[in-house]
Design a protein around this nucleic acid. Structure first.
Length: 886
RNA sequence: GGGCGAUUGGCUCAGUGGUAGAGCGCCUCGUUCACACCGAGGAGGUCACUGGUUCGAACCCAGUAUCGCCCACCA
């Protein structure tokens, strides 16, 4: 028997020093770790926010509130994991992490769900009914509007709370299982009383500073939801249409003027023809008039530079309103307003006053009350009948603006709306004299650290492309009411210029049921009385205040001063133009600062076929199923493997790798502890041990730098790579020695090194694999690894002394060479090697010599010969012992 | 039309000036001795293309192509 083999035998000797904590299980397992540790963390308040800490000690996170009326999908798990990794890292760095959770139950998705679930609809004109029993209760696909029972807004909000509380429980359970280190005592709902108060208070502050105002103007309108829509909610979609070439008639008796239009139903709304001032074809017509086909209305032909000669016929109908260019012409050319499309998307029933010719009135009778779609066909028939349609309509694919949640193209209608200034209007006309709000907001964007940095460009693109102030009023019933009333004059007309506002102490209010100061309910709607504003605010008008809502603005000044401005806003890249931007606007206006210093943008989850993960697929692959199948650490590993801002493939094999890593952490830790890691405070004296710790110190440096730059993938990859080397090479190399085969002091050195390495690796991995690391931590350490300090390189370097970090790699290479020889000879790795030769450059030879005993032990090499070579390290002449037949 | 990002082995991705990397998959072998939810070893790539800068380019510059996304585009 060779010496190495007898060394091996030594390891198994009963009196070998193998101190094992009784807490280490014989067969470590991930089964049940999620429930067990989530329970312990909740019980011990591991993630409770200590609100006595100063702002400088706090790291605060403006968590995105998920929409509770939907279901959580894989994308949520992905991006929320990114945030949690940051939270856990900052906590270990010693920051007190403020990590609240909100639920978004304000807005259309919840409104629809409450309607269908309870069979009700919100009617703010109704009084509150304390004893309301909804018609039914349970999931329903949809309940016809006629079958919905109208209820007061307060009742509706109450039902919303009742419904969403169940969703919130499920969401919370999922988040706990995923291991989010949220402080669950800090939660909010975007429609709850506190949020409504914050939302209204911020609005009133805007109003008092002339940052919010009301105005009557043409704007985009959704005919399905019958509400105005903001620029940020637009979506351009392909929409099939036809070019119609139609004839206008010159008043001077000249030939027809042909115009191409995709919206012939708006001929009656036409107020002028417009061509480019330099367009030779139409220059002679400028200043003359034409009459419209079918309706015979006399219209001017005008010049405007926004007309594009190469579009259509080069001369356009300006209608009030077909598109935003029409609005521009209407404004700049001082044209009359001739609206024909009502708020319901149908042509008005009354014959418009400008259609004076009897034939025109007759033609209108065919159109009155029709949808724009049907009216189009009717107008085309009329044009065909009068011979004013030139040729047949030609199919075209055009782009039309849609409300992102709507399915009909938006119309432009004139209405009174509320706006908050966001720099979207011309500087010269924008608010308080001379204020360059757009410039200020661009400066805020430059001040904000975007992760990844290129996301900043999207912010700039958006701000530079704004074409109007932020429209915040919505003609909906569910939402946070705009908190104003209007005094009515003798004729019962409201005074919109001097709205009546509530006292801040009375917030939240509902103007449809509450009464302004100095009035009584009897005066509602009466001359010299008052009228409550019926509009509600855009959901973003509330969501843009999540830092204030979560941080206790004006409710808990002490808390607010410790968390605001916050450190981090994590969110999706798709809502930079909405959530991120609007939050910056509100904070800039109210606080004169950014709402947070960092914005972390997560990417999309893509199907294997590289398409954005669809809702339907998201429902098939439920987060819970993933957590059940693979374990939370494994799913987190997959999520954490994707960089911020980068789309990631939905890839369950990546989760399997994560699971393997988590299991390896358990097994390797158990083994390291059995080798003596648990009871070691000796000096690290052996060269290989010192080398390993020197390498680990470098890992700590790199991982820390990466985490500080919000590059968690680099930190994970660096740690993971080292961890596998630690397991596969280092632990194998020191096994014999740790068991005592090379003497007591050599063993003690191994124990100390194993102890420090394990301790450090668990900390480095804790943000990514919170369950496996906590499990191991509990075997031999006090408290939670998640409240332990992030490792530092300096103590490791001190322990490593003169250790050369390259040594582990070089020795590992030699060990791999011996393994390769065994593998190629198709023999067991435990085959004894009477003799082997390692040829290496002089520098490597020194390293090999210092660790020769460890290498011989791990390779089971008896006679290890080290010879000089000029090039890379090679292992040759490996003699293999006879394999003893079993 | 403007902009941003991507393009590296079959797959998923690292790698930002100095001899092409990892994991998965694949192939071979091993394993009652921490780990079969395992281990060891191996094969596999002219780094999308074209030009330029440089002693040297996956990396820097210019351009092209393809893919994804954002914005604009309703006559």
């Amino acid at each position: 028997m060779s010496t190495p083999h007898s060394l091996w035998e030594t390891a198994a000797m009963p009196d070998a020093p193998a101190p094992r904590s009784p807490a280490v299980p014989d067969k470590p397992s991930l089964d049940g770790v999620e429930d067990r540790w989530a329970g312990v963390w909740a019980e011990q308040g591991t993630y409770a926010f200590d609100r006595t800490r100063s702002r400088a000690e706090v790291y605060s996170i403006d968590t995105p509130p998920p929409t509770v009326s939907g279901s959580l999908h894989v994308g949520h798990v992905f991006s929320y994991t990114h945030t949690d990794v940051v939270a856990r890292y900052q906590r270990m760095r010693g920051r007190e992490v403020f990590y609240p959770m909100g639920w978004d139950d304000n807005g259309l998705p919840t409104e629809r769900r409450v309607q269908n679930y309870y069979g009700v609809r919100c009617d703010p004109s109704l009084p509150y009914d304390a004893g309301l029993v909804p018609p039914h209760s349970g999931e329903a696909k949809s309940v016809r509007a006629a079958d919905q029972q109208p209820v007061s807004r307060r009742n509706f909000v109450g039902l919303c709370a009742r419904l969403t509380v169940e969703d919130e429980k499920q969401f919370e359970a999922l988040w706990r299982r995923l291991g989010l280190s949220v402080d669950w005592s800090h939660t909010y709902q975007t429609i709850d009383e506190g949020s409504r108060a914050v939302s209204q208070k911020a609005f009133l502050r805007n109003l008092s500073r002339d940052e919010a105002y009301t105005a009557e103007a043409p704007g985009l309108w959704d005919v399905t939801f019958q509400t105005a829509v903001a620029q940020a909610e637009l979506e351009a979609r392909d929409y099939p249409g036809h070019f119609h070439r139609i004839a206008f008639h010159r008043s001077d008796g000249g030939g027809p003027v042909h115009v191409e239009t995709t919206r012939p139903e708006l001929v009656a709304a036409c107020v002028a023809l417009v061509a480019h001032p330099d367009d030779e074809r139409y220059r002679p017509l400028f200043g003359t008039t034409v009459t419209s086909p079918v309706f015979g209305v006399e219209l001017p032909v005008l010049a405007h530079p926004a007309a594009e000669p190469d579009k259509g016929a080069g001369i356009a109908m300006c209608c009030t309103f077909g598109d935003l260019t029409d609005v521009q012409w209407w404004r700049e050319l001082n044209l009359p307003l001739r609206s024909v499309v009502g708020r319901d998307g149908r042509l008005v029933r009354e014959t418009p006053s400008w259609l004076t010719a009897p034939a025109a009135a007759q033609a209108w009778a065919e159109l009155a009350g029709k949808t724009t779609f049907s009216a189009r066909a009717a107008v085309v028939d009329a044009l065909r009948a009068t011979g004013e349609l030139d040729g047949e309509p030609v199919a075209t694919q055009r782009k039309a603006n849609f409300f992102e949640k709507g399915d009909k193209p938006l119309e432009i209608v004139t209405s009174r709306q509320w706006y908050i200034r966001n720099g979207g209007r011309d500087v010269s006309t924008d608010g308080p004299a001379g204020r360059d709000l757009r410039g200020e907001l661009l400066a805020r964007g430059a001040e904000l650290a975007f992760h990844p940095g290129f996301m900043h460009v999207r912010y700039e693109n958006w701000v530079n492309g704004l074409n109007g102030d932020w429209l915040v009023s919505r003609q909906r019933f569910f939402g946070v009411p705009i908190p104003v009333w209007y005094a009515l004059d003798d004729a019962g007309e409201p005074d919109h210029d001097a709205p009546l506002v509530p006292a801040e102490a009375d917030l939240p209010v509902d103007p449809s049921t509450d009464v302004p100061a100095g009035y009584v309910e009897d005066q509602r709607g009466r001359p010299r009385g008052f009228a409550g504003e019926t509009d509600v605010m855009d959901t973003w008008a509330t969501s843009s205040l999540t830092p204030q809502i979560a941080g206790g603005w004006e409710r808990d000044d002490d808390l607010f001063s410790r968390v605001f401005p916050m450190d981090l806003r994590p969110q999706g890249q798709d809502i930079i133009r909405t959530w991120l931007f609007s939050t910056v606007v509100r904070s800039h206006l109210e606080h004169g600062s950014l709402p947070w210093s960092n914005a972390a943008l997560s990417g999309w989850i893509l199907d294997p076929d590289r398409k954005k993960m669809s809702k339907s697929k998201g429902n098939v692959v439920t987060p819970l199923r993933l957590l059940t199948d693979h374990g939370s650490d494994a799913v987190r590993y997959w999520a954490a493997s994707a960089r911020l801002g980068t789309d990631a493939a939905f890839d369950e094999t990546q989760m399997k790798i994560g699971r393997r890593l988590a299991i390896k952490v358990l097994n390797a830790s158990k083994f390291a502890l059995s080798l003596g890691a648990a009871d070691a405070d000796a000096d690290v004296t052996e060269p290989l041990d010192r080398a390993m710790l020197a390498g680990l110190a470098g890992v700590v440096d790199r991982a820390t730098a990466a985490m500080d730059s919000y590059e968690h993938t680099t930190a994970l990859a660096t740690t993971e790579t080292f961890f596998w080397t630690f397991c596969d090479d280092y632990v194998e190399l020191v096994k014999d020695r740790a068991y005592g085969g090379h003497g007591e002091q050599a063993a003690a050195s191994a124990h100390a090194a194993l102890s420090r390495a394990l301790d450090t690796l668990l900390r480095l991995l804790a943000p990514f694999l919170p369950f496996a690391t906590e499990e191991v931590w509990s075997w031999w350490r006090e408290g939670s690894v998640h409240r332990a300090a992030w490792p530092q390189a300096a103590p490791l370097r001190a322990a490593a002394g003169d250790g050369d970090a390259r040594m582990l790699g070089v020795v590992g290479q030699a060990l791999a060479g011996v393994r390769r020889a065994k593998s190629q000879a198709k023999v067991s790795m435990r085959t004894d090697v009477p003799r082997a030769v390692v040829a290496a450059p002089a520098a490597d030879l020194d390293l090999l010599r210092a660790a020769a005993a460890d290498l011989r032990g791990a390779g089971r090499v008896d006679d290890l010969q080290l010879v000089a070579a000029s090039h890379e390290l090679t292992v040759r002449d490996v003699e293999l012992a006879e394999v003893t037949p079993r």
